[in-house]
Design a protein around this nucleic acid. Structure first.
Length: 292
DNA sequence: ACAGGATCCTGGGGGC
DNA sequence: TGCCCCCAGGATCCTG
């Protein structure tokens, strides 16, 4: 479930492997993407130099020579992996999939960049020109990065909606990069119940929630790095993965703060995990004692 | 306009 | 052991 921290880690790992490399060859996998790249992407990609690898929300952007931009969304199960050239897909954990494949890396590197997406929720799109790229994000209404979230904007967006806090956090137009996991984690961090409407949140609490988002994302990005590195290398996203979460996926288990069993409910069509004791209302209780 | 729901897709987990 | 059912999720489209 790649959200901002996972995507950021993938980007950081890919950057030194890809920047400056030329796409010597491009190959497509057997199964088509649900959302196609573009008509003649193979011809367009071939020979391009990867100039930058960056992230915008949950989107990965590969800036290529000639003002070409490859935008990848990992969806749920998407992976961008660099492997040795010629390594059969079947050898790659966690399992063999012959999905889409774009193979850059020049002969010297003898490496390949592969995009695999088991459940095909991901996408890869090619944009010609910065303007076209910008238009894509603008049309999607993609909101600001959490780290540069303007408090005034944030409070205003909360004030303007009757949707529950969980739904607001998931809305990429309000803030980009938060998914189901970190929405729950941020609400726990802020000690707020996920159900109250945004417009019931006092300004001070709104600020608190905004900071909680950043705290949670930063913590995850720091801690997940080593785990994800293995993941990128192709050894799977398991082990130590679950332990990072305070509430997500911990239904029935004791709250790490107070011991009350974590509960689960359904909000905005998503399963939502929270501590019924620590997260009673939108107005958080006492500031959480800083643990380390 | 806004909010909520359905949709896509397929491996994995739970239940029997 | 095996099979079936349903669940998980991000973005997008549809409905009320």
């Amino acid at each position: 479930v790649p959200e901002l921290p996972e995507v950021e880690t993938v980007v950081r790992d890919l950057r030194p492997l890809l920047v400056g490399r030329r796409l010597a060859a491009v190959r497509r996998g057997d199964k088509a993407l649900r959302r196609p790249w573009c008509a003649d992407w193979e011809a367009l990609l071939r020979g391009r130099v990867i100039q930058a690898v960056r992230r915008r929300g949950k989107w990965i952007v590969l800036d290529l020579s000639g003002d070409l931009h490859l935008v990848v969304h990992l969806g749920m199960t998407g992976q961008l992996i660099v492997t040795d050239a010629g390594e059969p897909l079947g050898d790659l954990p966690p399992r063999a999939f012959d999905r889409e494949e774009v193979a850059p890396g020049g002969k010297a590197a003898a490496r390949q960049l592969r995009f695999r997406d088991v459940r095909r929720f991901g996408s890869a799109t090619l944009f010609e020109g910065t303007a076209q790229l910008g238009e894509f994000f603008r049309a999607a209404g993609l909101g600001p990065e959490p780290f540069t979230l303007d408090p005034v904007w944030w409070r205003r967006r909360l004030k303007a909606t009757r949707r529950c806090l969980k739904a607001v956090l998931l809305d990429q137009r309000v803030v980009a990069g938060v998914g189901n996991i970190y929405a729950d984690e941020a609400l726990f961090e802020a000690q707020m119940h996920p159900a109250p409407p945004g417009n019931t949140l006092p300004s001070a609490a709104a600020n608190q929630l905004g900071m909680a988002i950043v705290t949670v994302l930063n913590r995850a990005t720091r801690k997940r790095g080593p785990t994800i590195r293995n993941y990128v290398g192709g050894s799977g996203l398991r082990g130590g993965y679950q332990e990072e979460f305070r509430v997500y996926g911990r239904t029935g288990q004791p709250c790490l703060r107070c011991g009350t069993p974590i509960e689960r409910l359904r909000l905005a069509g998503r399963s939502t995990h929270y501590c019924p004791s620590c997260q009673r209302s939108a107005v958080s209780g006492q500031p959480k004692a800083d643990r380390r």
